[in-house]
């Protein structure tokens, strides 16, 4: 298996607090892994470091791209995104005033260029480009079953649909690696099951490595091939779903025990 992302002794300190402490893990290409842990365990902080939102205090993050390995620990979020890392957010962040289709189109910004004159004068090449990028967007919307709402402003959509729009927007950037931050939050069991199937399809169809943070254990156990457990910023366990379910340390972290989480 080829390595997609190597996280090497990464820590993040806020003030005096260690939100993530010395975490190392390797994500292989094509894997579907889950990151779990109680609230405040540092999962989103880790995501933010891996996507360039806020860099690690110490440690190194290496991403394998088509043109070799790149250290992304000092890069900005948009640079990391251009290298093929996409994400969704715990509290949905869509471009509310723009339509669903525009949300997808704008995710393609870095994938093509346009010339100023051709655009403002509406020369033929403008229409050709818009047609091409529009067709690609339509195809994606169809795959995500969003064609019916393509022209709706995203702010007016129901919650579950907004989650799906966020995923299609991330996929539209043509990522190698996709981070999903609590994709099933606020969904009912039926919607969660649909989401689970969708994530599996996305991974298969686009060949994307998927990493997800999730509290819904039915989704995690049914989808993830491998699970990492964070607690108080440190990795306390890793393994297949079967192993994790029986891990006493994980059970203690979740059920309380001596910790105050």
């Amino acid at each position: 298996m080829t390595k997609q992302l190597v996280i090497d002794h990464v820590s993040k300190v806020f003030g005096g607090l260690k939100a993530v402490a010395d975490v190392s893990l390797t994500i292989n290409q094509g894997a579907l892994i889950a990151l779990i842990g109680p609230n405040g365990a540092g999962k989103t902080t880790l995501f933010n470091m891996l996507t360039g939102e806020s860099g690690p205090t110490t440690g190194k993050i290496t991403l394998s791209t088509a043109s070799g390995d790149v250290d992304i620990s000092k890069k900005k979020a948009y640079q990391v995104a251009k290298l093929g890392v996409a994400r969704t957010f715990q509290n949905i962040r869509l471009f509310g005033a723009m339509s669903v289709k525009e949300n997808v189109l704008v995710a393609r910004t870095h994938l093509y260029h346009e010339d100023f004159l051709g655009t403002v004068l509406r020369l033929p090449q403008f229409y050709q480009r818009e047609h091409d990028v529009g067709a690609a967007a339509d195809e994606l919307l169809d795959f995500f079953d969003l064609t019916a709402v393509a022209d709706e402003p995203t702010a007016s959509l129901p919650y579950g649909t907004q989650r799906r729009v966020e995923i299609v927007r991330a996929v539209a950037t043509k990522p190698q690696l996709l981070f999903l931050d609590e994709p099933a939050a606020g969904m009912n069991p039926e919607e969660t099951a649909d989401l689970s199937r969708l994530i599996a399809r996305v991974r298969e169809h686009f060949g994307i490595t998927v990493v997800l943070i999730e509290h819904d254990m039915s989704l995690v156990m049914n989808l993830a091939e491998y699970i990492y457990v964070l607690d108080h910023g440190a990795m306390i366990a890793k393994g297949t779903p079967q192993v994790i379910q029986r891990d006493p340390q994980v059970i203690r972290a979740y059920l309380g025990g001596d910790s105050d989480a």
Partner: peptide
């Protein structure tokens, strides 16, 4: 996109 949500805009490159 930047107007609506700059953090999300950065996340898509």
């Amino acid at each position: 996109a930047i107007r609506d949500d700059d953090i999300a805009a950065e996340s898509i490159g």
